[in-house]
Simulated scan of single mutants.
Amino acid sequence: MSVLVIADHDLGTLSPATARVVHAASQLGPIDLLVLGQDAANVATEAAKLAGVAKVLVAQGPGTSDADSQVIEKLAAGYLYVIQSAGSAGRDRMPGVAAKLDLMPVTDVVEILGPNRFVRPIYAGNALQTVTDNQPRHVLTLRASAFRAAPAGPAAPIEVLDSALDSVVKLLRSDRTQSDTADLATAQIVIGGGVALGSAENYQLLESLAKKLGAAVGATRAAVDAGYAPNDWQIGQTGKIIAPDLYIAIGISGALQHLAGIQGAKKIVAINTDAEAPLVKLADLALIGDLFEIIPQLTAELDRLGVSR
């Protein structure tokens, strides 16, 4: 049973989510890893070192959604499974690919029970659904945070595909958030902020703390909508799903949509003035007080102890 996994990458670097998807998909069969887009040589070299990858396929092209989907659709006929992470690219691309292949996708998979049995969250993460997919082929998106990363393995061969494609899509502009903190989707420690921070400038408090702990910074949808944080920091049902070892929630009451995005967190620390907030009640440890007093004190104490990542 052959598996085609589409790699996630950006600016010539393989996303950590890909290693997690490869580890999960390896139980379904030998994996061919497809690297799409421009300047994919370095990405392919990184991808070839993942254990479980039998071959890396490289399709150089414009990197637009329509061109990439054409490559996947052509290759899909030779595979039983076509899989990508349930990140922004996978959510956007894979349902369309499934429609072209006349298949129903199984999305946001958090556990693989067998060749055609998968577990996925429903009702904003409040329940888990076991899906039996009896279709001849399977199009899946996997929640990367639910799986461990594949270790390094022997280098797999790299094959460059002949994929000269025209695209009707033209990239006009790319807006990027510049940050030197860890990747939000795969970070072991995440610090999240809510609208209680009051401004984009106050999020610098979280960034300073994050640098001390080697953590990623996230935000609630309300904070993103208010312009306090960039869109790619959003955690929740309509943002990024995280599963860190430690989640520090600062000034977050705990709306249902946000809680759906942090259910994989192993330990939760909440800092809030409201002892009755839903996230405070859910937390393993709660600090009740003014975040503008607690965060500087916490940062200063980390400095005193010499904690720095």
Rank of each mutant, 00 (worst) to 15 (best):
V22T: 05
D183C: 12
V56Y: 00
L298Y: 06
L80Y: 08
D8Y: 05
V82E: 03
E46R: 01
E201H: 13
A76Y: 05
L57M: 03
L50Y: 02
Y203D: 06
T220I: 04
I122S: 07
A25R: 03
R20Y: 05
N134H: 14
E293F: 00
P278V: 05
S208V: 13
T186N: 12
A283K: 03
L305G: 01
A149I: 09
T132K: 14
S163P: 05
D166R: 15
G193I: 12
G306E: 00
I158C: 00
A260F: 07
K49W: 00
Q234C: 03
A124S: 10
Y79P: 12
S179C: 02
S179I: 10
P105D: 05
V269A: 09
R309F: 14
I288C: 03
T141C: 11
L140C: 09
R137W: 06
D303G: 02
R143D: 07
L298G: 10
A182K: 13
G78E: 11
L57V: 07
A41E: 15
S2G: 08
V110S: 03
A200V: 11
T13Q: 15
V21R: 02
V168K: 13
K267E: 15
A265E: 07
S69Q: 11
A196E: 10
L33F: 10
L172H: 07
D274A: 01
T45E: 12
L75H: 02
V169E: 14
T177G: 03
T181E: 15
A223T: 15
A283L: 08
A196R: 09
F147M: 07
A223Y: 04
L36N: 06
Q263G: 14
L285D: 00
D133E: 04
R304Y: 11
A286G: 01
W233K: 06
G63H: 04
E201T: 12
D108P: 07
A215Q: 11
K212P: 01
E207T: 12
D8K: 06
R20K: 06
V71G: 01
H258A: 08
E201M: 10
A124M: 08
A86K: 08
D183H: 12
E111T: 13
P121K: 06
A19C: 03
Y247V: 06
L279N: 01
I72H: 02
P121D: 03
G52Q: 04
A149V: 08
V119L: 07
P105V: 04
F147D: 01
T299S: 14
A260R: 07
I158T: 13
T181W: 05
A223K: 10
D284H: 10
D166K: 15
L33M: 06
E111Y: 08
P296V: 11
L197K: 11
Q135K: 05
S167Y: 09
V106H: 13
V168A: 14
V195E: 15
A156D: 00
N202E: 12
A275F: 05
